[in-house]
């Protein structure tokens, strides 16, 4: 018996992978253009004398 009925479909796995890749890509696109660098990382590096 297949415990996961959806496992048998390669399509489900493919969609889940595409979805994951799309969201991760968009997240990191937003992340690396964000205020994380402006407000946190760069000032910190500056204070440590690394910038």
């Amino acid at each position: 018996m297949n415990e996961y009925p959806n496992l048998s479909t390669r399509r489900a796995r493919l969609w889940a992978l595409v979805w994951m890749a799309a969201f991760l890509a968009d997240y990191f696109l937003q992340f690396f253009g964000s205020r994380f660098w402006r407000d946190l990382a760069l000032p910190l590096l500056g204070r440590m004398g690394l910038k």
Partner: peptide
């Protein structure tokens, strides 16, 4: 949806959502 960097859900919540729905 994708999330504010400081006040958002981070990279994993939505990325694994569809897999969670399948699984």
């Amino acid at each position: 949806l994708v999330g504010d960097i400081i006040f958002g859900g981070g990279p994993l919540v939505l990325a694994f959502l569809l897999a969670g729905i399948y699984g």
